[in-house]
Design a binder for these strands. Structure first.
Lengths: 198, 198
DNA sequence: TCAGTTACATGCACTCATGTATGTAACTGA
DNA sequence: TCAGTTACATACATGAGTGCATGTAACTGA
């Protein structure tokens, strides 16, 4: 069958991007080599080099598209503290988030890499950071500190998953329950807890 | 001057172990190559291969010694919840802990590596995990969940430092203050909070 | 003091990942 | 339909990292 050039390009680009994310998840940043990605995508290195300047270019594009994908699946957060918590956890617990953490971690060890993929990683950081919250209530010290602490805890849990082949830690549920309980408490009767937690 | 063989061996082994940790901290696991470590230690690859079977063997030994070093500097935790928190943070915020996280992260992506350095990494995990607490009070659900949540938050903060060349995040102090406040509250009047946080 | 052992240094072969041609199909427009 | 362009695949050169083998200097014990 006859396919247009644009169809050919977009399908192989999609295959490469998907493969890149998948290899990142399964093997980590260092083991994500051009040959590995191409084999996984069912194309040769020539195809990769034709569509992207090099492996780094593909990975940057892949992370960019992954951000859009994750944004699309997690939606926008509800306007409550519990909503912000759940929203962050939905993003962070997505199995594809490991690819983001791989990039984040690798960029921390390589200044040059940080310059190339830093912007994408920064976009992901806003997903779990309430720093840019539009909700004025989130700026209140007690709430802000809780959300920041929760953010770190969620990242810790995500790191636990990432280092355990995606399996959640045994105490993950308990920690999440505690955080959710606190979030609900903030939402329900924030004034009651202010004296206790600030 | 004349030095005994044992002196020669121990000094170069110490140089290699120190260099290995330092390169791990500065460049990360993937960039920690035998040549890099040897250059940093001021010896040749021949010396490394003479004292260790390969680079992996050196890194395993280095992590083993690092565990003893960190244990020695952080001491044993005080018998309070605040003490457990501070103890864990002292260990996790040590700049050398980044080497541990590098190993931990790398092992998560390489099953073979996990088998070789898994035991060492597991030892470090107990440093920040209250799972093996001798104190019966730590087993109480509310306390246990708080410590687990704190553990994840501390690891999140450590990850933030690791990915920022060791610089602490802007909100690190606020998060730590909140955790310390909660820990103190648990210690001071645990019963008061039980109704709120469990 | 000297034969034997230990502690390194040096050199070579091999693998692997990458960048750079160059070749060849598949499409497109006139 | 065919010249030109796009989308790949293949081949080659290069450099980095490692394991191994060999060479040499420093120590040790008799």
């Amino acid at each position: 069958m006859r396919r247009t050039q644009e169809e050919r390009s977009s399908t192989t680009q999609a295959a490469l991007v998907d493969a890149a994310i998948e290899v990142l998840i399964q093997r980590g940043w260092a083991a994500t080599t051009a040959a590995q990605v191409c084999e996984h995508a069912g194309v040769t290195r020539g195809a990769l080099l034709h569509h992207y300047p090099n492996l780094g270019g593909l990975l940057a594009s892949a992370l960019d598209r992954l951000y859009d994908d994750i944004i699309a699946t997690v939606g926008t957060p509800a306007d409550t503290i519990r909503g912000a918590l759940d929203h962050a956890w939905t993003a962070v617990s997505d199995r594809r988030f490991k690819a983001v953490m791989e990039a984040w971690w690798a960029a921390g060890n390589d200044p040059e890499l940080a310059r190339s993929i830093g912007p994408v990683v920064a976009k992901f950081a806003t997903l779990v950071s309430p720093a840019n919250a539009t909700n004025a209530q989130f700026r209140e010290p007690a709430v802000a500190v809780f959300l920041l602490t929760a953010r770190e805890a969620l990242l810790g849990l995500a790191m636990g998953r990432a280092t355990s082949a995606g399996r959640s830690l045994g105490h993950e549920a308990a920690v999440l329950d505690a955080l959710r309980w606190q979030a609900d408490a903030f939402d329900a009767h924030r004034s009651d807890l202010e004296g206790v937690l600030t």
